[in-house]
Amino acid sequence: QRITLKDYAMRFGQTKTAKDLGVYQSAINKAIHAGRKIFLTINADGSVYAEEVKDGEVKPFPS
C-alpha cells in the first residue's frame, strides 16, 4: 500500500511515523508543513519504506 507522509501521520500519529522511519518527530512535522512530496510504502510485514519525489527524481527518505 502506498500513502502520503501526511496521510500516514494523520492515521498513525507523528510519533509513530517518526519511529517507523527512524527520524525525530520534529522532522516529520517540518516535512509535512513544508509540503514535501514524500510517499510511504507499507509492506505486507508491516515495515515501512519512504521515498521523496523532488525535481523529478525519486530518493529514499530520510536520505
Rank of each mutant, 00 (worst) to 15 (best):
2 R>T: 11
41 T>N: 11
54 K>C: 14
31 A>F: 09
3 I>N: 03
51 E>Q: 07
56 G>Q: 07
57 E>G: 10
42 I>R: 05
32 I>N: 02
57 E>F: 11
22 G>H: 09
25 Q>K: 12
2 R>I: 10
28 I>F: 02
30 K>Y: 10
3 I>K: 03
18 A>V: 02
42 I>M: 09
46 G>A: 05
26 S>H: 12
63 S>E: 12
56 G>N: 10
11 R>S: 09
45 D>I: 04
33 H>R: 13
18 A>G: 05
20 D>K: 07
13 G>D: 02
62 P>K: 03
34 A>R: 09
54 K>V: 15
38 I>C: 01
30 K>Q: 14
3 I>R: 04
39 F>W: 14
19 K>S: 11
5 L>E: 01
29 N>D: 14
10 M>R: 10
16 K>M: 04
19 K>H: 13
54 K>Y: 12
14 Q>L: 15
20 D>W: 03
54 K>F: 15
61 F>N: 02
35 G>E: 11
46 G>H: 06
8 Y>N: 00
23 V>E: 03
36 R>G: 04
48 V>S: 03
13 G>Y: 01
61 F>K: 02
61 F>V: 02
11 R>D: 06
47 S>H: 08
59 K>W: 14
3 I>S: 06
47 S>N: 07
50 A>Q: 01
60 P>F: 06
40 L>H: 00
35 G>Q: 11
53 V>S: 08
62 P>F: 04
20 D>I: 09
34 A>V: 08
43 N>F: 11
51 E>Y: 09
22 G>L: 05
47 S>Y: 06
31 A>M: 12
16 K>F: 02
19 K>W: 08
6 K>W: 08
61 F>A: 02
27 A>C: 15
48 V>I: 13
52 E>F: 03
44 A>T: 11
48 V>A: 05
63 S>D: 14
4 T>D: 06
5 L>S: 00
14 Q>M: 15
11 R>V: 10
63 S>K: 11
9 A>D: 03
30 K>R: 14
57 E>R: 13
33 H>G: 11
57 E>M: 13
57 E>Y: 11
5 L>A: 01
7 D>E: 14
44 A>W: 08
43 N>E: 11
9 A>T: 11
3 I>W: 13
49 Y>G: 06
57 E>W: 10
50 A>I: 03
61 F>W: 15
50 A>H: 01
41 T>R: 06
11 R>G: 05
60 P>M: 08
14 Q>N: 12
53 V>G: 04
41 T>I: 15
33 H>P: 02
35 G>T: 05
11 R>Q: 15
24 Y>W: 12
40 L>W: 00
41 T>K: 05
26 S>A: 10
22 G>V: 03
7 D>Q: 07
52 E>W: 04
53 V>L: 13
29 N>S: 14
3 I>L: 12
55 D>S: 08
3 I>F: 11
41 T>E: 08
44 A>I: 11
43 N>W: 10
62 P>V: 04
59 K>T: 13
62 P>H: 04
